[in-house]
Design a binder for these strands. Structure first.
Lengths: 127, 127
DNA sequence: GCTTGACCTTCCACTAACTGGAAGGATTAT
DNA sequence: ATAATCCTTCCAGTTAGTGGAAGGTCAAGC
């Protein structure tokens, strides 16, 4: 499978897929002509990356998550520990976002939102 | 007021304050010796920036907000629209994180977590 | 067999929003 | 006078890509 098909199958831009190869995250084989040759397994990793990235995991986090996926000799306890750490991370992020949402919502609620110039959002931010 | 005092008063790193000058967001006057001289109004803007940034507004958003802040004749509706867009964004992120949390949790729950190499988490990711 | 267009390659430069550090000048304290 | 602490500019690096140029390859149509 060439890069464009892999990109479409994983819902990532071609440039990004090439970048993930460059930094060693998903390194496909090469065809005779030098083209990247993506296997189904590679596409699977790409899709996983796309999902994890869109959820705020850094590429470094993703590298860890992928190593779970790739290392067949890892003790399952290690795998579980890493997964639980990721869950904690997700929980923290959710909590942060909820707080952020509340702050923004409080600001928006207090704003009459018409064409008058005075605005509680601006005043709230300036406080 | 020198840059360090301004930074402390606005709770921003000195480097960041200098950066905001560099990109033309908050451009203080200069003293005889070439030092940046921050007025109270500059500090006010800096604090505004710090708060808006920490709430997830991009510097581009901030530039808009700042111009709205400075424009006493702007409609509060413009400000509200910007804020509501931020809230939508946050909501999307929260929903996605909850989905990911569930996926990771399901994987972790199914894992026996001992020193055997086979692990349902890995199998689940490989699916 | 040749051309056209779509695809692929690498490489270099650029983005946001800083952050760190070096080199050197100014100010303040002892 | 000297040391410590500011301040300045400039250069480089960070994360996670994105855009574009220069050039090689492939499949279709004439």
């Amino acid at each position: 499978m060439n890069i464009q098909s892999a990109a479409q199958a994983s819902d990532l831009p071609v440039k990004t897929v090439r970048y993930y190869d460059e930094i060693g995250l998903v390194t496909p084989g090469r065809a005779e002509n030098g083209y990247r040759a993506y296997a189904d397994d590679d596409v699977h990793k790409l899709r996983f990356l796309g999902r994890a990235r869109s959820l705020g995991f850094s590429l470094d986090d993703c590298r860890q998550l992928l190593s779970l996926y790739e290392d067949r000799n890892r003790a399952s306890a290690d795998v579980k520990a890493l997964t639980l750490a990721q869950i904690d991370d997700v929980d923290r992020k959710i909590a942060e976002l909820k707080l952020l949402r509340k702050t923004l919502n409080d600001l928006a609620k207090s704003c009459h939102g018409d064409d008058r110039p005075d605005c509680p959002i601006i005043d709230g931010l300036a406080r």
